[in-house]
Nucleic acid binder design. Structure first.
Lengths: 223, 223
DNA sequence: ATACATATTTAGGCTTGTCTAAAAATATAT
DNA sequence: ATATATTTTTAGACAAGCCTAAATATGTAT
């Protein structure tokens, strides 16, 4: 019934939706799933027929409630198992993902909830990503405007306060996406612009206006 | 590569081999796997080509070393997970099997060995069945001759000391198989015969000679 | 607006593991 | 020893997921 392949697709679509806000493209899914676009098309038809997604040919994909529920449950399981592997079995950061990728497909509601309890109802996984509770609700994380960060602080982009078409276009052009990690390298008082490093890579200067409109949360990620 | 279906077949064959000593029949496997005999035949051909089993048409099946290794690893995982579910997540007896049936197919050597350590290297699972160690060796269990049991004691048949063709035939005819559970109901001194109840069902009178040749181990199973 | 490039879908095939129905081998009973 | 019953295998099909190659849409640049 609930094939783990379908779950993987729904999870991928969920993850990608969070970043692109419009429909998710076939090729984006293909890249993430490490498969061919034609295979994705096949699967999208199936998921659409089963009521998991909204799919219109050539138009990309959005999740239906039902699909989102499945994705969130899988993410919950994945992240709880990661906590288990790290805190109970002493796995290191780089070892947990691969195994959790398998464990996330075990189907037993009782197992997940018992594990959650056993682990002490953790709110975030070892990467700092939030773990949805048994009702699928994510723990609210502290939201801060980028301009309020101090030099040297690290954060993750979690939202935009002004979402005009142009602004989003702009963000996309400079590769600032939801989930992007950033570090404040310098703040210039005279015009309130900020220099940041994105995802440990290139450095970008952001204007006062932009900084005001970016919501971030502190990145507790130790890595 | 290592499809979980193949693992399930090898495990089934392993379990059935332990009881029948001769080759395992297609229909026995089909029954255990809850599938059709024709499907089993297909799979046996594949497993044979891959060197997991010895398969001769119409003659039944035995495991090759390679197949036995796979089966034992799966059994090790299954039983360790059962311990985990019982002792750490407070699952009850009847709930563990189904979930362990899924968990046993997770492929990560490090996971299994870490779990083993985390659980304190248990020697038996919650059903009292032995857990092979990481080298595939089963913990040696205390072997006793049936005639040395006292009235009221319970045991499991683990071997025969005399394995003539007729003796094995006899055991099969009275449904005394390896793994059969028995309880000593009465012992008759005058001819050293023993009355036992088999698998909680029918009662059988065993002669002195038979008792001397049956190896059992005490049944610590609380059920 | 047209031509080119890119993204997406379709068509047809492959593998794994399953099934049913029919054929072949083995086992059993007289 | 022969007929009957049972077990096992073969043949042919199907669904899920994947692939390659070709066709079709969409996007972009002039």
């Amino acid at each position: 019934m609930n094939s783990s392949t379908e779950e993987d697709y729904l999870k991928a679509i969920y993850m990608l939706s969070a970043q692109h806000s419009s429909g998710v493209s076939t090729s984006a899914i293909a890249e993430r799933m490490e498969t061919k676009a034609s295979s994705v098309t096949d699967m999208l038809k199936k998921l659409s027929e089963k009521g998991f997604i909204n799919y219109v040919k050539y138009q990309g994909v959005t999740l239906q409630q039902k699909g989102s529920d499945v994705a969130i449950k899988v993410i919950r399981k994945h992240r709880l198992w990661e906590v288990f592997l790290c805190t109970k079995l002493n796995f290191t950061w780089d070892e947990i993902h691969e195994v959790a990728e398998q464990l996330e497909h075990i189907t037993s509601v009782k197992l997940v909830d018992s594990l959650d309890q056993f682990l002490g109802y953790p709110k975030v996984d070892p990467h700092g990503d939030p773990i949805p509770d048994k009702n699928g609700n994510f723990h609210k994380i502290k939201e801060v405007a980028l301009r309020d960060l101090k030099v040297g602080e690290k954060a993750v982009l979690i939202g935009v306060r002004e979402d005009s078409r142009e602004f989003l276009k702009y963000l996309e052009s400079i590769k600032l996406l939801l989930g992007s990690k950033m570090e404040v390298l310098n703040k210039f008082e005279f015009d309130e612009s900020v220099l940041i490093k994105v995802n440990g890579g290139n450095e970008i200067m952001l204007s006062s206006l932009v900084c005001k409109n970016l919501s971030v949360t502190y990145d507790k990620n130790k890595k």
